[in-house]
Nucleic acid binder design. Structure first.
Lengths: 232, 232
DNA sequence: CCTCACAATACTGTCGACAGTCGGCCGCAA
DNA sequence: TTGCGGCCGACTGTCGACAGTATTGTGAGG
């Protein structure tokens, strides 16, 4: 049917995971909207309304809402209706307590088995941090850095658990950043210094010092963030 | 309209959560079938087949499969088809490493804030353990005991993370138990003794000793289970 | 006998529709 | 004016159907 046409130039051809389903797109969009505060905590998400707004049927929307519930961004009431979760100070503590349990462990594992390409990716992340302009980009790179370490730990469930917390972290940090855009430079400085130390610890390949360093790093954030709240 | 009829006898009236949706029932059934080994690891789960087998349409089945994926019992390939996960020795280590990170932390929190009704529930669990006949019942009560402690910790996310691991634990323990029914008595003895110690530690309300005890308890199981494997 | 092309099959992702149910609003009566 | 009852609307849970696509079996040809 087609003329010979011997691959004029191969099309974009990134078949690894272009498997974007509508449900995933809806979920990604809702995640962004929640993280950006467009969907306020406590507001209801009705399936027909969302479906109409996004030009799809209810099926992908329903699937996306189930995914957001897994992420802890929305909750279903007894009658199945969906509501954007509200983050309290207790949730904040809870979240960081879990980071404090999971990330040092991942760091110890990663120090034992990390490979050069992964170290390069971490270095690239630090380099990219240099040119960020907004706190939004900065915190995305920050979480990416930690995600790389989790993946380098080689523990799939550990990694999965951390990723199930990430959307809530993004949501929390997003709310924080909308109030403190002015601090970008200072935060970037802190982040880069800490991450460079973490990278160095991974290169040294000693699990225990690496674990302790990550413990201090997360603890440091945990103790520093409330000071931001106190001084708007 | 009605004659006086002063509440002849109030109907079953358990409106707390009879909100069983078809998707939840399908998910529960599939979970059981996977834990019991009826759905072998690696076997495919096609939506139309399952829907026909259970007498429902594809919609609840699809929702149930998403839930099972969240539980880590099934996985989707690149084309969206569903496959029962296979558990390897690495997965086993992974799972227990996470218990070792989460449960001692929960134990420390629970020791500080547990209330009498929750202590009673733990005692009732230990009592129920006395009359169990099968390893299946035994491990369900065992996991219930730990779940009660997680809930008593008052950290919703910590609890949610642990619950996301539970189906995999049930699956693993189920496979183990089908091979070692003979050991029920011995296992019951060990479990009851350990759980009584844990309950005592909670009553003492001291976080650090409680944490260390739970650490030893989980570590003990982690080191004991492989010896079961070695001596069938 | 092996290989290649084609047809038949099977499954996923998505859509629109329907029944059941609950909350809210309006009107009516005391 | 206030309390009550019935009607309307909205939303969820579920169903059946369709298009697109990859897989498998089959048959023809070398």
């Amino acid at each position: 049917m087609k003329p010979p046409a011997p691959l004029p130039f191969l099309p974009p051809a990134d078949p690894p995971t272009p498997r974007r389903t509508l449900a995933q797109e809806v979920a990604a969009r809702l995640r962004r909207e929640i993280a950006h505060g467009i969907r306020a905590p406590g507001s209801m998400l009705a399936e027909p309304t969302l479906a109409a707004a996004m030009g799809v049927s209810r099926a992908p929307v329903r699937e996306a809402l189930l995914e957001l519930e897994r992420d802890g961004l929305v909750a279903f009431d007894a009658r199945g209706r969906t509501q954007v979760c509200t983050m309290t100070a207790i949730d904040f503590e809870d979240l960081f307590a879990l980071r404090l349990a999971l990330e040092p462990m991942a760091m110890a594992h990663a120090a034992q088995r990390i490979a050069p390409p992964e170290l390069d990716a971490l270095q690239a992340n630090i380099d990219a941090t240099l040119t960020t302009q907004s706190l939004g980009d900065l915190s995305r790179l920050d979480l990416d850095f930690h995600a790389l370490i989790l993946e380098a730990s080689g523990r799939p469930r550990l990694c999965a658990l951390w990723h199930s917390l990430r959307p809530q972290l993004e949501c929390w940090l997003g709310a924080l950043h909308r109030k403190h855009q002015a601090l970008t430079g200072q935060v970037r400085q802190m982040t880069m210094a800490s991450h460079a130390e973490l990278l160095q610890a991974l290169q040294n390949r000693q699990p225990e010092p690496a674990r302790r360093l990550m413990q201090r790093h997360v603890q440091g954030w945990y103790e520093w963030l409330p000071t931001l709240e106190a001084s708007p």
